[in-house]
């Protein structure tokens, strides 16, 4: 039976290859988008450690209060590291950078506050909000400036992109179901004499379904493999281009490839979509051949 399906696919080689391409390209679109989002996610995770929360203390904050704040910061799991900057240490630097000197300092007193600079180990919006709430309640803090906002925004965009990819995948899967179903329906129509005869001489419905289901399986497997191979080639091509750019500009970035499991998932999804589409189409078409 599988041999019959293979023979049929071979007999109409061009249309089978076209089908592989249609399925393959349709699957590449969401897979490639997924790959882009995965890379952006990884990028955002890499830079999250560079993001910072600045805590400016009130000018009249005592050393005890400052030490208390430091103890509290030490105990927070969301904080990767922190450092304290004394206002007296920064003031000369600021003066120098502004062009002031001792005789012409322009300001009667140091306007800077003491500050803690925190590197969080997360950009999770919930955890960061929790941390901010906690910091807000601490005594002696004048102002908190979060520069993790843009990472949060990026993460939100990535989450949105993930949802968009999921939606697009569902739409494309539906489109594939229609295309494959229609192809199987056409195949059944072109073999209607054989189906009718088979029914007349005692073929069961499952006997008639089988070669068409196998055809669907072959389409799914071929399409899935096409998608996986083309995707792999795209990643190789982009990474090679990046290496050339790296050599010129000294950047350090490389596209993270999908895992073997994710490639397998693409192939399995393709097979599943094709087999389900074939099954639906076959059942619809079989109603025509209900002889008795």
């Amino acid at each position: 039976m599988f041999l019959i399906a293979l023979q049929r696919s071979h007999a109409s080689l061009m249309s089978t290859l076209m089908m592989f391409l249609v399925i393959g390209i349709t699957l590449i679109l969401p897979s490639l988008s997924f790959l882009v989002v995965q890379n952006l996610k990884s990028f955002s995770q890499n830079i999250q450690h560079e993001s910072q929360i600045s805590i400016f203390l009130k000018k009249d904050t005592s050393i005890e209060t400052r030490n208390k704040i430091e103890r509290e910061l030490k105990g927070r799991p969301e904080i990767n590291s922190y450092h304290f900057v004394k206002k007296e240490d920064v003031w000369p630097k600021l003066q120098k950078s502004l062009g002031f000197n001792d005789s012409n300092h322009g300001l009667s007193e140091n306007p800077l506050p003491d500050a803690f600079f925190i590197s969080p180990n997360t950009v999770n919006p919930v955890e960061i909000s929790g941390l901010k709430l906690f910091l807000d309640k601490l005594e002696g803090i004048d102002q908190i400036i979060m520069d993790t906002e843009w990472v949060k925004k990026l993460n939100s965009i990535l989450q949105l992109a993930n949802k968009a990819i999921l939606l697009a995948s569902i739409l494309l899967a539906s489109m594939l179901t229609v295309v494959i179903g229609n192809t199987i329906h056409l195949q059944m129509t072109s073999h209607h004499e054989e189906i009718e005869l088979s029914k007349l001489i005692g073929a069961t419905n499952s006997f008639i379904r089988r070669p068409f289901l196998y055809s669907g399986f072959i389409y799914g497997l071929g399409g899935g493999l096409t998608a996986a191979i083309v995707l792999k080639l795209i990643v190789i091509f982009i990474n090679q281009t990046i290496v050339e750019v790296e050599a010129l500009y000294g950047t350090q970035f490389i596209i993270i490839d999908l895992s073997l499991l994710q490639y397998l998932l693409i192939i399995i999804s393709s097979i599943l979509i094709a087999v389900i589409a074939s099954f639906i189409s076959i059942n619809q078409s079989m109603k025509k051949y209900d002889i008795s």
Binding site: E193, E196, L197, K199, L200, I201, G202, A203, T204, S292
Partner: peptide, 16 residues
């Protein structure tokens, strides 16, 4: 029904 049909050898008018 298919199993009943299998018991017969059928020769059709249009050969099929």
């Amino acid at each position: 029904i298919p199993y009943v049909r299998r018991k017969f050898g059928l020769v059709f008018q249009d050969h099929k």
